[in-house]
Design a protein around this nucleic acid. Structure first.
Lengths: 139, 139
DNA sequence: CTGTATCCTTAGGGATACTG
DNA sequence: CAGTATCCCTAAGGATACAG
């Protein structure tokens, strides 16, 4: 967890060093498309992330500035995790990944409405999704 | 390397199981944006991939159908690696990753012309890049 | 509920030597 | 040149227990 020297200044490498692993983007997905905000909600996702891994990824997501952790006024002792603008700006990347998988994965469980929206009005989809998330930042 | 059971049918998970690691997309990047086609060219990239890792990733990329390996008629004993349509269809994902990193990485070495093209005419950029790569398939 | 801590196993990966 | 094969070490990750 100590800060490692980056391997290069290539933008693809920069992105990979933040979310180039098999768990980080699943947590982002949960916040981005499934409206999840709580630790216990992430834990319940079907891929079955381990509690120590989840805690670790939430921490690095926070350190990278993609996520903020706040005390949740509503639920008292609970914490709430939200995407920042920097995190929300990954909507296009995730959306395109979904589109690609929907095209090539025979078993894809992608939401068909989402895919049609993506294919007919990508800009609109991204704006709608992003605006919804941006509004949540200040709640 | 044995086929593992997938963790879920989520499209994001599908994508991550193919290229959700710290090396695969760097190899794809080399083919997609740097015009690299040979093993030795990938080895030379500045991130310094190890030879065993490179061989392994090229194999899984082939198995996933993103890359094809052919004997290179020009160079005799050499092999040439090319992106397939399935691989080329990742251009939007990589392009958006580059755009995101260029925005948030202070040290980003992203090509400025590329970024301006991306921000002013994303569709055009994707089409130009993809068409170029598609033409190579049958060479 | 939200994590830490621990233990243990496996996968990832660097270095290097070697083969067709 | 294009890999394989080793060796060895570290990081990733699963299971489970426990603490604030």
């Amino acid at each position: 967890m100590a800060k490692e020297k980056r391997r290069s200044d290539c933008p693809i490498n920069f992105a990979l060093e933040i979310f180039g692993d098999r768990w980080t983007l699943l947590v982002v997905r949960d916040m981005m498309f499934k409206g999840k905000h709580y630790y216990s909600e992430f834990l319940k996702s079907e891929e079955g992330i381990a509690t120590n891994i989840l805690a670790q990824r939430l921490l690095t997501l926070e350190e990278s500035g993609l996520v903020v952790k706040k005390n949740d006024p509503q639920h008292g002792s609970k914490f709430i995790y939200k995407l920042t603008k920097k995190g929300i700006d990954l909507v296009p990347v995730l959306a395109d990944m979904i589109g690609w998988s929907a095209k090539y994965d025979p078993l894809s469980a992608a939401d068909q409405e989402f895919i049609r929206y993506l294919n007919t009005d990508r800009e609109g989809l991204i704006k709608t999704t992003s605006d919804l998330l941006l509004k949540k930042i200040d709640e």
